[in-house]
């Protein structure tokens, strides 16, 4: 399954609108920020080919939905921060999250969940 297909199945395919995110200062934890920049770097070459390439390292980590839910519940009031969605969208596609099409939003949402799940799992294992 291509990564884009996985993302559209993983998310609810609803066009989201997030509130404006302040750009002056970041409220994201340093570890989340680092993971975000590393992930953007790692998938940069594939970003125009998400409808073709699989991303096993992401899909494997998100395959256990119970664990994903557990990780999200224990983080940031059970939600993915809007700032993470916005920063990922700008970092990968150079457009604000609210302005991109739903299939691209799904990709950004999946990447954001992957970052949060990785962060929570690694902080538990430390």
């Amino acid at each position: 399954m291509s990564f884009a297909e996985f993302c559209s199945k993983f998310c609810d395919q609803v066009q989201l609108t997030i509130p404006d995110v302040p750009t002056e200062s970041s409220e994201l934890e340093l570890d989340i920020l680092k993971r975000m920049h590393a992930l953007i770097g790692n998938v940069q070459l594939q970003k125009n080919r998400f409808n073709q390439v699989p991303m096993h390292f992401i899909t494997n980590r998100l395959s256990d939905l119970d664990e994903v839910r557990k990780c999200l519940d224990s983080y940031h009031n059970g939600d993915v921060p809007d700032e993470l969605l916005e920063s990922l969208s700008m970092g990968l596609y150079e457009y604000p999250f609210n302005s991109i099409r739903v299939e691209y939003q799904n990709i950004i949402e999946t990447l954001a969940v992957y970052i949060v799940v990785s962060h929570v799992r690694d902080s538990i294992n430390k």
Binding site: D31, K34, R35, H37, A38, L39, I40, G41, N42, Q44, F57, I58, S118, D122
Partner: peptide
């Protein structure tokens, strides 16, 4: 063998 959880890309 690239670590996808590392803080910098391509580590």
């Amino acid at each position: 063998f690239i670590d996808t959880d590392a803080a910098t890309p391509n580590t």
